[in-house]
Write a protein that binds this DNA or RNA. Structure first.
Lengths: 132, 132
DNA sequence: TAACAGTATGTAATAATATAACATTTACAA
DNA sequence: TTGTAAATGTTATATTATTACATACTGTTA
C-alpha cells in the first residue's frame, strides 16, 4: 500500500512544472519558471525538490545536477533508480527493467555493508544521435 | 595494453594528495591542501581533476561532488564504476566485482541506446555504523 | 633547429549550484 | 485549543564549477 502524499502549494507548482517538461530540469531554471507564481528564492525551490525526491515523485540526476519526474507507474522506486543519459543530446530516461532492479536490489558483497538504496546512470548515444 | 600517462606537475601533486588521503576529497579541500605547493586557483585544481578522471586515475563520486583515487589494480575501469557509500560516516569504497561489472557492461534494453559507460552508487550503512 | 601542434599552466573574474539562519504561518491530530 | 510537525518567506552566504585570455612547456617532424 502506497502512502498518498498531499503536495503543498510550492511542491505542487514545482512538480507540475518538472512533470510537464518531460525531461530533466535544473534548479535555477525551475526557479526562473516559477517566479511568476510567487516562488522567489532558491531555497523555496530546493526545499520543494528535497521533499519531492524524498517521497519519490522526482529523482535527481546526480551527474547533471538536474531533476526529473518519476516515470515509473507509481513512483515506488525512489530507492532503486536507473537512468540512461545521452551524452550528445542530454536526453534522459528512467530505465524500468525488473531484472536489472532485482539484480541490483539483491546485490551484496563481502564488505559487510547493508545496501538500502542505489542509483545507476548509463551513458551513451541515443538512437537519434547515433545515426547522425 | 594500457597507455602510460605521464602526469604533469599539477596532476601529480593533486593525484598524490587524493591517493594518500585514502578517501574521497572535495575540490576546494584539495585546493586548500595544495596551496603551499603553488596551486592557487580553483581552475588549476579542476583542470587536473578533469584530466585525472579522463585517464581513469581518479573517479568522481557524483552524489558527493568528491573525487577518489581509483582502487582497481590498474585503473582500467574508468568507464564502468561502482561505489558503496556509507550514509552515516560517508566512507566510500570502490566496488570491484567482476560479475557485477560484466552484468552492467553487457546490459542493454529496447531503447535503441548504445551504452558506453555507467556509474553506480550504492548507499547504506557500513559495518561499523550498522553496529552503533 | 625551427616551426608547429597539442597540452599544461597562470590569473582574474564570474557563473551555477546549494545551504544557513531566523522569523512566521499553515495543517492537523490529540 | 493547544501542541507539534511541516511548510513558507526572506536575506545572506557558502560551495562548486566555468569563461576568457595570456603564456609556457613538451614532443614531433620538416
Amino acid at each position: 500500500m502506497q502512502k498518498i502524499h498531499n503536495l503543498s502549494k510550492n511542491q505542487k507548482i514545482i512538480f507540475d512544472l518538472i512533470d510537464k517538461s518531460g525531461g530533466p530540469m535544473k534548479a535555477y531554471s525551475i526557479l526562473f519558471n516559477v517566479q511568476k507564481r510567487g516562488i522567489k528564492a532558491p531555497l523555496q525551490v530546493y526545499r520543494a525538490l528535497d521533499k519531492l525526491v524524498e517521497i519519490g515523485k522526482i529523482h535527481k540526476i546526480e551527474s547533471r545536477n538536474a531533476f526529473i519526474a518519476c516515470q515509473n507507474s507509481s513512483c515506488q522506486v525512489s530507492k532503486a533508480t536507473a537512468f540512461s543519459i545521452c551524452e550528445s543530446c542530454e536526453n534522459v530516461s528512467e530505465i524500468s527493467n525488473s531484472k536489472l532492479s532485482k539484480y541490483l536490489s539483491n546485490f551484496s558483497d563481502n564488505s559487510g555493508m547493508k545496501y538500502s538504496k542505489y542509483n545507476l546512470e548509463f551513458f551513451g548515444l541515443c538512437k537519434k544521435c547515433k545515426s547522425k
